[in-house]
Design a protein around this nucleic acid. Structure first.
Length: 934
DNA sequence: GCCCTCACG
DNA sequence: GACGTACGTGAGGGCT
């Protein structure tokens, strides 16, 4: 697109809009508006759009810009923090309701078809300075749309500023009026005067007035500092002599950098007409009715109507051409690659998929990358394909006709890290980690899997093949057609490139189309906030945790394995003797026959498959009278610990890091909980003494400790809040033993000196309530008659009637809407709620449990998302999440600091989105290993 | 590939 | 009146 644009030069006029200033001004100028459909805060976005619209429609006549860009700050840390670590340190975090609006303002800018620019490590001011210098040097004119005094140093020949609010032009005279010196000496004055807002120290006691006087007296700052002895006022003289170094640092802080590395040209900033569809689409999505109407009128277009049909009814409408995997591009040379990169830059987004040698993203190697920008088009860039090897010893030689991996990554990196280009993935955490291993931190990202999860949790799973079939009516090429299966399976690197291209490129196109399908549904289905605040931000957080891994002591596990093997052999002998014959103790079928046929024990219940149940609770009952089932229980526990933990865990130790790297699935559980796989580190034993020793094998690195923080009773607290149970809320506020309190209320006994059995029963009921209690379930759990269990439940509901109200209301809501929601808006669909028969009970209990379990999951997600920023100055890393627990690794000396900071984040994680009526309590511990820390 | 069992919250 | 149930997960071993 830019090839035809004229070179930037004389006669051109560049407008540089200070986007961050727009945002903050918009935020503070407007009341906290929220989007009506889902409560997403959008006040700043609304103000921002109004300002942009006003800017775009202002009549400027011959002074109209030929080129324009909106520039944003990328992140809080910049190169200035290396000069002075306290730079901007006292600047408060942006308000919670502003944060989710930052990405939206970028989207808004793109919707207006204005170039959107930000660069990591640089402030917007530096980018503005760099562009202004370049434009001025090229002979063009520059107007900076901002009233920021820090930018006034740029004013001069060919560069002026425009205060967008006062509509006032700022030239050298206005600068002189403000600083008492000309633009070229502004930094000298700022260096002396300092700036309390940005925490630029300056010289104490010297303000702008004094500073400009001094500079005017001595000419410039360096001269002033050299000849400070000549200053007449003694105090002022001493201040300058004492603080000369601090003043010089201050100058470096306020001096804007004209050398920001930029990967685009001035030509590419050429002014473009807004695209009516894109702009109206965005404004409608934001539900800005007035502005949408105004824009539609001006552009002579129809304002689109947001439809809000539930996703389950959404047909796989094939408005776009069917997916055809035969015509994809295979990118084999630099020109083709550059053309794709130009396309991506023009569109501002790209769907991306990586192909690798395996599923373990900590070990798999990159084989190729596929991209798609427009439906109907996609490409595959092979980079790591090797010759199919019949020869086992033949070195895996790269196939000809592939660009070198380094070159491809180097070319793509600016795009992948460009804050103005959205990278769309399906399960993008996978690709993020693969690229992170090549030093690329991809941002910003979108994930179609997480979009589907926010919309469809509870309805179906969110894998690409399933989504493509459901929503695009397209059956993806099965990977098996390329790599085979079973014994003859080959790696993706061995697949011929002409076979890999349609498969890989298709994945990118499907991802793009899923994004086109889902993205507009998030607002219409009111789950944008969930997606933006609970799903999307988890990707880099989890990726970092997974890549950090946790150290595991393989020797410790091996010793335990040996001990377990001995114990099992001994138990096996005893069991065989008791049975009078040899059989496979690990076979429930054989065991059932021994127990209930050969030995003729009572209580043999056959399930639907005709097999006897030999589950632990059956065996526990039998164990009261008989030795054999007791031995089997012991054997089973040992076998479990050995096979699942002490034997399996060492095989997961990464050869290079020496640590175990789990993988968390964000969209696996229906309720918002994470799930941990390969290995599952969320079910490491803790309940039995023998099992707990396995936790001793999870150790901190030398010089470090493991710290574990966990929420105390978080689900019961959420229940107390959502069901508004005064007695429960008060107990949590008073910090008293919640189960004892329950027992006391139910049975009328004092909390002091309570019978532990009574407390245990109350505890079981408390948990039962969370699960959607039934008399049968409670009777089994407590091993009491069903009628007795039912009596307990009745008493409980009498004492806490609000709980029954809550349960009834939740089920009624689910039946009405087809879903339940958590406190934070997470939606869990309940498709089975209107079933009849036995399945109805299960759906009913799941619906009761989901908002409670889900809200707890939301809260710890919020804590995790805030954690990296909160602990960034501590020598600590977040390693694991176990539903209500976070595990960190921290240098010895910083244990207490970490606990204080992390606890604060966790205890306040619900706020400000939700003001809980109960406190959240967090327990903490630390030690050389996980057993000690827990 | 399904079922059973059991580890966790 | 009978039915069959605690909620949410993942992994390993047996068996077809």
């Amino acid at each position: 697109m830019t090839q035809d644009a004229p070179e930037f030069g004389k006669g051109c006029h560049l407008h540089l809009i200070d986007g961050s200033a727009f945002i903050f001004r918009a935020y503070h100028a407007l009341p906290p508006l929220t989007r009506k459909s889902d409560g997403l805060p959008v006040g700043a976005v609304a103000g921002f759009c109004n300002m942009l619209w006003k800017y775009v429609t202002d009549e400027r006549g011959s002074d109209a810009p030929t080129h324009a860009a909106v520039i944003f700050d990328h992140s809080a840390k910049t190169f200035r923090n290396e000069i002075y670590d306290l730079y901007k340190a006292n600047r408060p975090e942006p308000p919670e309701d502003l944060r989710p609006q930052f990405p939206l303002t970028r989207e808004a800018t793109r919707a207006f078809n204005i170039s959107c620019i930000e660069v990591e490590g640089y402030e917007a001011d530096d980018i503005i300075a760099t562009l202004a210098c370049q434009a001025r040097d090229a002979g063009g004119a520059v107007t900076i749309i901002s009233s920021d005094k820090d930018l006034m140093q740029l004013v001069g020949d060919g560069v002026d500023m425009l205060d967008p609010i006062k509509a006032k032009l700022i030239g050298p005279d206005e600068v002189r009026e403000k600083f008492g010196v000309g633009p070229e000496r502004v930094v000298d004055v700022q260096a002396l005067a300092g700036d309390s807002v940005d925490n630029v120290p300056g010289a104490p006691g010297i303000g702008i007035k004094t500073a400009s006087q001094l500079i005017n007296d001595f000419g410039d700052l360096e001269t002033l500092l050299e000849r400070a002895e000549e200053i007449k006022q003694p105090k002022r003289r001493q201040t300058l002599i004492d603080h000369a170094e601090q003043i010089r640092i201050s100058k470096r802080l306020v001096q804007l950098d004209c050398e920001t590395p930029l990967d685009f040209t001035l030509q590419s900033l050429e002014v473009r007409d807004p695209d009516a569809d894109a702009l109206l689409g965005f404004l409608t999505e934001m539900e800005f009715r007035t502005l949408t109407a105004r824009v539609a009128e001006k552009l002579g277009a129809e304002a689109p109507v947001v439809t809000s049909s539930p996703p389950s009814e959404a047909p796989a409408a094939p408005e776009r051409p069917a997916i055809d995997s035969t015509g994809y591009d295979c990118v084999r040379d630099r020109d083709a690659l550059d053309r794709w990169i130009a396309q991506i830059r023009e569109a501002g987004h790209v769907a991306i998929d990586t192909e690798t040698t395996g599923l373990d993203e900590m070990q798999a190697d990159l084989v190729g990358i596929s991209l798609s920008v427009h439906a109907g088009h996609a490409c595959y860039i092979p980079i790591g394909h090797v010759a199919g090897s019949d020869d086992l010893f033949g070195a895996a030689a790269l196939v000809d006709g592939q660009l070198p991996m380094d070159e491809v990554l180097k070319a793509l990196r600016p795009v992948l890290e460009d804050a103005a280009i959205l990278k769309i993935g399906q399960n993008v955490k996978y690709d993020w980690k693969i690229l992170a291993r090549h030093g690329i931190r991809m941002a910003p990202i979108a994930d179609t899997m997480l979009m589907s999860y926010a919309l469809n949790a509870g309805t179906h799973n969110h894998g690409m093949d399933e989504l493509a079939e459901r929503y695009l009516g397209h059956r993806c090429i099965p990977i098996k057609e390329l790599i085979g299966s079973g014994k003859s399976q080959i790696g993706f690197a061995q697949v011929a490139i002409d076979k890999a291209t349609p498969y890989a490129a298709e994945d990118a196109e499907v991802t793009l189309r899923l994004w086109q399908h889902f993205a507009p549904m998030l607002p219409s289905e009111k789950v944008t906030t969930v997606y933006e605040t609970l799903e999307r931000p988890m990707v880099p957080v989890l990726a970092d945790m997974e890549m950090a891994g946790i150290r595991v002591d393989g020797e410790h596990l091996k010793r335990m394995s040996n001990a377990f093997a001995q114990k099992m052999a001994q138990l096996e002998d005893e069991i065989h003797q008791l049975a009078g014959e040899k059989f496979n103790v690990g076979s429930p079928k054989q065991l059932g026959e021994i127990l209930f046929e050969k030995m003729g024990l009572e209580g043999g219940k056959q399930g639907k498959t005709g097999a006897y149940s030999t589950s632990a609770d059956v065996l526990e009952d039998l164990a009261v009278e008989h030795d054999l089932p007791a031995r089997v229980l012991d054997w089973r526990q040992t076998a479990k610990l050995k096979s699942t933990y002490t034997d399996a865990l060492p095989t997961y130790v990464h050869p290079e890091t020496g640590r175990v790297h789990t993988s968390y699935s964000i969209a696996g559980a229906q309720t918002g909980r994470l799930a941990s796989t390969d290995p599952n580190l969320q079910n490491i034993p803790v309940r039995s003494e023998e099992g707990r020793r396995i936790r001793e094998a999870f150790v901190a690195a030398p010089g470090h400790r493991l710290v574990s923080l966990d929420y105390s009773q978080i689900e019961l607290r959420i229940l107390a809040h959502v069901a508004e149970i005064p007695a429960l809320k008060q107990a949590f506020k008073d910090g008293i033993d919640i189960h004892a309190m329950t027992a006391s209320q139910m049975f009328g006994v004092p909390v002091e000196g309570m019978d532990p059995m009574i407390r245990r029963q109350a505890k079981a009921i408390n948990f039962g309530v969370i699960y959607g209690i039934s008399g049968y379930g409670l009777s089994r759990n407590l091993r009491i008659p069903r009628a007795e269990a039912q009596d307990f439940i009745n008493t409980y509901f009498e004492r806490f009637p609000e709980i029954r109200d809550y349960m009834d209301k939740t089920v009624a809501d689910a039946k009405e809407a087809g879903f339940v929601t958590t406190l934070f808006g997470r939606r869990i669909n309940t498709p089975g709620i209107n079933q009849s028969g036995p399945a109805a009970g299960g759906a009913r209990r799941a619906a009761i449990n989901a908002p409670i379990q889900g809200a707890a999951a939301d809260i710890i997600r919020r804590a995790m998302i805030r954690m990296p920023e909160a602990i960034r100055d501590l020598p600590a890393r977040m390693l694991l999440q176990v539903h209500d627990e976070l595990v960190f690794e921290v240098e010895d000396a910083a244990v207490d600091d970490l606990i204080a900071v992390a606890r604060g984040v966790m205890e306040n994680a619900a706020a400000p989105a939700v003001q809980l009526s109960v406190p959240l309590d967090v327990d903490a511990g630390s030690g050389a290993n996980w057993a000690e820390a827990h």
